[in-house]
C-alpha cells in the first residue's frame, strides 16, 4: 500500500480563530476514509484545503510524494455539500464541460459524460435543464462531474446529509460501488454513514484530530464491556439505584485501580456501568440486587458501540 496523500501539520486560521489546528493524517491508495466530527469541527475547512480551494495557514500536503502546488487538482474529484451548477445547462452538458476543463477533448468528454450519467442513474434526465433537478439528482450529477477525469482521489463534503432518505440511499449505494475503484475521502457528522462505507476514520473535534485509524481496529481496541440496569419505577428502587451509583462513583474516586466499575451513568432511569471485568462485576451487582431485594426490570450485559466511543470522543 502506498500513500496517496500525506497531510502534515495542516493549520488554518481565520483571523484569530483557529479552524484547523495542525492535523496529520495519511490516506492510503484504495482506501475509503471518513472525516468524522460534529458540525463546526473543521471538516469543511480541511476538505477545502485538500482540494486547493482554500490556502492553508501552515502545514504540508504531499500527493504521491510531491508537495501540493495546485497540480493536485488534476488528481482530485470534488463534490461539495450542496453543489451549485449552471441552471441553464443540461446535466449532460455540464459533465462534458467539466471533462473539457480537465483537459479532455470534446469527443472524449462527451463519451465519458454519457457513460457517467448512465452510471449515476441520470440518463433519463441528461438532456433536461439542471435548474429542474431535485436535491438527490444534483448530488448524483455532482458525482458524475467529479469523476469525469478519472481522479485518483474522490473528495466529498457531507455527500448525503442534505438528502431525504431515498436520495441518501441512492447516493450511498453509488459510493459503495465507487470505493472499489478509487480512493475516497468524505466528511460526515453521521457515524453510521462512516461505519457503513469506510475502512478508516479520522475523528476530528475543535479543529484537531481526536482519534484516527482503521474502523475495525478502533472498534476492537475501544470495545469495553457494559452492564445496563433498569429498575421498576417505585421510589424505593429508584432511591436504591441513586445511592448505589453514588457509592460506585465514590469507590472509583477512592481507588480507580481496584474498582470493578470504571464509569457509572444514570440516564432516563437506565444505569449504565462500564466495567473492567464482566464476570466479577456481574456477580457483585447480582449479589447486591438480591440482598437488597431490588425490583429489577431489565439487566443487560453487552459491549460499548462505536457510537458510544464517538460521543465520548467528541464531547470529552
Amino acid at each position: 500500500m502506498t500513500a496517496l496523500i500525506q497531510v502534515k501539520g495542516l493549520t488554518k486560521s481565520f483571523g484569530t480563530v483557529q479552524a484547523v489546528t495542525g492535523i496529520d493524517f495519511t490516506i492510503e491508495e484504495g482506501h475509503c476514509v471518513a472525516l468524522l466530527g460534529p458540525n463546526g469541527a473543521g471538516k469543511t475547512t480541511t476538505i477545502r484545503m485538500i482540494t486547493g480551494l482554500l490556502k492553508q495557514t501552515s502545514g504540508q500536503m504531499i500527493f504521491h510524494g510531491a508537495e501540493a502546488d495546485g497540480n493536485q487538482r488534476q488528481l482530485i474529484g470534488y463534490l461539495p455539500q450542496s453543489p451549485a451548477f449552471y441552471n441553464w445547462m443540461t446535466g449532460l452538458e455540464y459533465v462534458i464541460y467539466a471533462g473539457r476543463l480537465c483537459g479532455m477533448t470534446a469527443v472524449d468528454a462527451k463519451k465519458k459524460a454519457k457513460e457517467l450519467m448512465e452510471r449515476v442513474g441520470l440518463s433519463h434526465a441528461a438532456k433536461r435543464k439542471i435548474g429542474g433537478y431535485s436535491g438527490g439528482m444534483k448530488q448524483r450529477l455532482g458525482l458524475a462531474q467529479a469523476l469525469v477525469h478519472s481522479p485518483k482521489l474522490l473528495v466529498m463534503d457531507e455527500p448525503v446529509s442534505a438528502l431525504d432518505p431515498l436520495g441518501r440511499r441512492e447516493v450511498l449505494g453509488l459510493l459503495r460501488e465507487l470505493k472499489q475503484e478509487t480512493t475516497v475521502l468524505f466528511s460526515t457528522h453521521v457515524l453510521h454513514d462512516a461505519e457503513e462505507l469506510c475502512d478508516d476514520v479520522i475523528i476530528i473535534r475543535d479543529g484537531g484530530i481526536a482519534l484516527q485509524g482503521a474502523i475495525s481496529s478502533i472498534r476492537e481496541e475501544h470495545r469495553k464491556p457494559i452492564i445496563e440496569l433498569q429498575l421498576e419505577e417505585d421510589d424505593q428502587s429508584q432511591r436504591w439505584l441513586s445511592s448505589y451509583i453514588a457509592q460506585m462513583q465514590a469507590a472509583m474516586q477512592r481507588n480507580a485501580e481496584s474498582s470493578l466499575i470504571m464509569e457509572a451513568v444514570l440516564n432516563d432511569n437506565i444505569a449504565r456501568f462500564t466495567v473492567k471485568e464482566i464476570e466479577a462485576a456481574r456477580q457483585s451487582l447480582l449479589e447486591d440486587l438480591t440482598r437488597e431485594r431490588v425490583k429489577v426490570r431489565r439487566l443487560e450485559v453487552g459491549y460499548t458501540s462505536l457510537e458510544d466511543l464517538f460521543m465520548k470522543v467528541v464531547t470529552a
Binding site: 483537459g103 452510471r119 453509488l174 460501488e177
Partner: peptide, 19 residues
C-alpha cells in the same frame, strides 16, 4: 447503474488525450 457499466467506467486508466 448496472454492474457492467461499473467496469467500463474505468476510474483507473487515463484513456483520454489531454488538450
Amino acid at each position: 447503474m448496472s454492474v457492467s457499466a461499473a467496469h467500463n467506467g474505468n476510474v483507473e486508466k487515463r484513456s483520454f488525450n489531454r488538450t
